[in-house]
Design a protein around this nucleic acid. Structure first.
Length: 315
DNA sequence: TGCAGTGTTGCTTC
DNA sequence: CGAAGCAACACTGC
């Protein structure tokens, strides 16, 4: 589930809790000799990579954390004071069901569990597949029900890495303005607006929940083709994008499903949905008496108002 | 009990 | 090149 606001919430937690600590050990049950997919070869799902990863990460100090698209980045201090280019960055992509947790953990048999009573014991915080032991005796834990998540290591400069190089601009960057936004969308003039908004090459960080909410606010049908959207409506989408993503961050992310923050607690954006997962309910837009519909668009489920999000008829 | 549905992405095919 | 479909995986909820 994690989209830009959820990843940002996790990164904010990492900045608060982890900076200055050293990584003392790493455990995972994901690594196998022969990964099923080529793209797993440089992730913790490969035994060979895991060995290399440990060598590069253990005893290194965490100096910061940041977000790029839906990726969590954990920046490590240089391994050598002589070679600046040595600095490494851990990249974690949570995909569908991953999240990072921080606290006291203990290993019981071949499973890890929280050592103390609290939010880390939430049922969705089981399924632990990687554990970083830190120099203060606490742990950074990666739990991921469906095991789609990706953990890898980047050399600097990180933007050159194939894991990041094809990503579009950050929607919340101050200098990402309406003209740039429009230029990005029109790289896919025939694309359906919902699918284009979620295309990480066009713009980074938007997924299914936030695209539904953005289009609801802008009053655009998810299957509208980019080339058919009038300029004034492009501006509405742009404004809605900035507002909705910031609101997501302000509410600490969306925990309608399994997302939890670094301390294992729920976010609150799910209480403020206007479209996502509201099928059959009344539209909340003032003066609108539409009903929220659900339709599969590009093999994703789209939610939109029957009345104020209609396809524009062009003559 | 069984099966449809689930936030993401990258690979393959056309 | 772009669009579409599926596979990676395992659980929840009807």
């Amino acid at each position: 589930m994690p989209e830009l606001p959820e990843v940002q919430t996790t990164v904010n937690g990492l900045k608060n809790s982890l900076v200055g600590l050293k990584i003392k050990d790493i455990w995972t049950d994901l690594a196998v000799k022969k990964p099923k997919r080529k793209d797993y070869n440089d992730t913790l799902k490969s035994v060979v990579f895991f060995k290399k990863f440990k060598k590069n990460v253990i005893n290194h100090k965490i100096i910061g954390s940041s977000r790029r698209a839906k990726n969590v980045l954990i920046h490590l201090a240089n391994s050598s004071t002589k070679h600046r280019a040595d600095s490494k960055t851990i990249l974690i992509h949570m995909k569908m069901t991953g999240h990072l947790l921080y606290g006291k953990y203990k290993k019981v048999g071949d499973k890890w569990q929280p050592a103390e009573i609290g939010p880390l014991q939430d049922p969705y915080n089981r399924f632990i597949h990687a554990v970083f032991t830190l120099s203060n005796g606490k742990h950074l834990v990666f739990c991921d029900t469906r095991k789609f998540g990706k953990i890898t290591l980047l050399d600097s400069p990180i933007e050159k890495s194939p894991h990041l190089s094809s990503l579009g601009p950050e929607p919340l960057d101050k200098d990402f303005n309406l003209v740039k936004f429009s230029d990005r969308l029109f790289k896919r003039p025939n694309g359906l607006i919902k699918i284009v908004l979620m295309d990480q090459v066009i713009i980074a960080g938007i997924g299914n929940i936030y695209s539904d909410e953005i289009l609801w606010m802008a009053g655009i049908h998810p299957e509208e083709r980019v080339k058919n959207i009038p300029k004034i409506k492009i501006k509405e989408i742009f404004k809605a994008m900035k507002i909705i993503l910031k609101k997501g961050i302000d509410f600490g992310g969306d925990s309608m499903s399994d997302y939890r923050n670094l301390l294992g607690e729920k976010g609150n954006f799910q209480h403020h949905h206007n479209a996502y997962r509201r099928k059959g309910e009344h539209c909340k837009k003032r003066g609108c008496n539409g009903i929220i519909l659900r339709k599969v668009v590009g093999s994703r489920s789209a939610h939109y108002c029957s009345k104020h999000q209609k396809i524009v008829i062009r003559l």
